[in-house]
């Protein structure tokens, strides 16, 4: 059973989004990191890049698989988690905090309505089992 903080929003493609003001922090869910196994590389967007909701924003690679990361909202990349360059395992150890991937300043709050609540995401995981 993987951890699922109630305050977060999710994409069906297993990213999480923490909304604080007009800034969204993005990572991958505990379920996603567990399914992928040990991460060995994380490729993140450039700081300052303009992204559109559901654009590819990066790639996470584990020993066994590579997977694209999508941004949940449209906006400008404010920061990336530079610790992951040398320590991608932070995503495995702490996917919701130290293992965050990037922060984005969003322009259209309405996009947040398209994200899944933790209950909806849990329901999706249950149906995938």
């Amino acid at each position: 059973m993987s951890e699922l903080p109630a305050e977060l929003k999710f994409l069906s493609s297993h990213e999480w989004a923490r909304v604080e003001g007009d800034i969204v922090t993005v990572g991958i869910s505990d379920h996603a990191q567990e399914s992928m196994g040990d991460l060995v590389f994380v490729e993140l967007p450039d700081v300052g890049a303009d992204l559109h909701a559901n654009d590819e924003a990066g790639v996470v690679e584990s020993v066994k698989a590579a997977s694209d990361i999508y941004t949940p909202v449209t906006g400008k990349v404010l920061a990336i988690n530079e610790d992951l360059e040398d320590a991608p395992e932070l995503v495995n150890k702490d996917p919701y905090h130290d293992g965050w991937l990037f922060q984005i300043k969003f322009t259209d709050a309405a996009e947040l309505d398209d994200l899944l609540s933790s209950e909806d995401y849990q329901a999706q995981l249950d149906s995938e089992d």
Binding site: S12, S13, I28, S35, M36, V60, D68
Partner: peptide, 15 residues
């Protein structure tokens, strides 16, 4: 991570 399960499955079954 839309490509996630497809890729992961492809690699699981292939590699």
């Amino acid at each position: 991570m839309a490509a996630f399960f497809i890729i992961a499955c492809a690699f699981q079954s292939c590699s």
